[in-house]
């Protein structure tokens, strides 16, 4: 039963045309929800959340740093899965996703590094240390840039997707390193505050705005991916009748 549903979804979303119709219906309400959620979380965190007992107000960078970092890591996992499907099953939509997921992920990885560094100066006393967490996060940014670059350098889109897909798959190892570096080796960076299992070590008055900002950032990432994927689908299917009709209608 569940398997059948997954299979149906796979086939439906695997069809570029179905994806296009589906995303036209989702975007009009997903976009405002994403923006409202993100702004709510950030304003709550910046204006209303209490200050920290040790760091004072500089800790407020957490409300952008953690959502960006988690988004960059999850985005790369999605990129890895798309890469696997593109390389093994040669599914067109996976190739499209490979192209759509990377740019915003790269932006988030850059945000994570920059905000982390701006947070590090007042708290640790340094902008940068070559510890395992920071170095592996920098490699994650390079991985994103590599996937984007490969797709731009190779002209034939299907070949480009296979090369980029392979790089995306291999890079998943680095995601694991980023995630567990703070547990496996000695780093300047502290361990995770939000824990999937067990109690989070953050006061609820700070945790809720953080969770809301995270959700908002992930939703905005989804919006960005959908817009980019639609563009790519329209371009790849430009000779098909349905895209021609769409363009003729001037359907924005």
């Amino acid at each position: 039963m569940v398997w059948q549903t997954i299979k149906r979804w796979y086939h439906m979303l695997g069809s570029p045309r179905y994806f296009h119709t589906f995303s036209s219906r989702v975007l009009p309400w997903l976009t405002p929800i994403a923006l409202i959620t993100l702004v709510t979380g950030l304003v709550w965190g910046l204006v209303f959340a209490p200050s920290d007992y040790q760091q004072g107000n500089s800790y407020r960078i957490i409300f952008i740093h953690v959502p960006a970092s988690s988004g960059a890591l999850m985005g790369y996992m999605a990129l890895g899965v798309s890469g696997l499907v593109a390389v093994v099953w040669r599914m067109k939509m996976a190739e499209v996703m490979l192209k759509a997921i990377a740019p915003f992920g790269a932006a988030l990885a850059a945000i994570s590094l920059i905000t982390g560094s701006l947070w590090g100066k007042p708290t640790w006393g340094t902008y940068w240390q070559w510890d395992a967490r920071m170095t592996s996060m920098l490699i994650l940014l390079f991985m994103y840039v590599g996937v984007i670059a490969l797709q731009n350098v190779i002209r034939e889109p299907r070949q480009a997707a296979r090369a980029a897909g392979l790089l995306a798959i291999v890079g998943v190892i680095n995601v694991v390193i980023v995630k567990y570096s703070v547990e496996w080796v000695q780093t300047l960076h502290q361990g995770s505050t939000l824990k999937l299992f067990g109690e989070s070590t953050i006061n609820p008055a700070m945790k809720y705005p953080l969770l809301i900002s995270m959700l908002g950032m992930w939703l905005l990432y989804a919006v960005n991916v959908l817009v980019r994927a639609r563009t790519e689908v329209e371009w790849r299917e430009r000779r098909s009748k349905w895209v021609q009709t769409l363009i003729r209608k001037g359907d924005q």
């Binding site: 920290d52 708290t123 700070m206």
Partner: peptide, 17 residues
């Protein structure tokens, strides 16, 4: 030559502390 503070992953308001 250089001392850096390594803070922990706990965040709470001063009153709670």
């Amino acid at each position: 030559e250089e001392v850096l503070a390594k803070h922990d992953e706990t965040y709470m308001p001063p009153e709670v502390q």
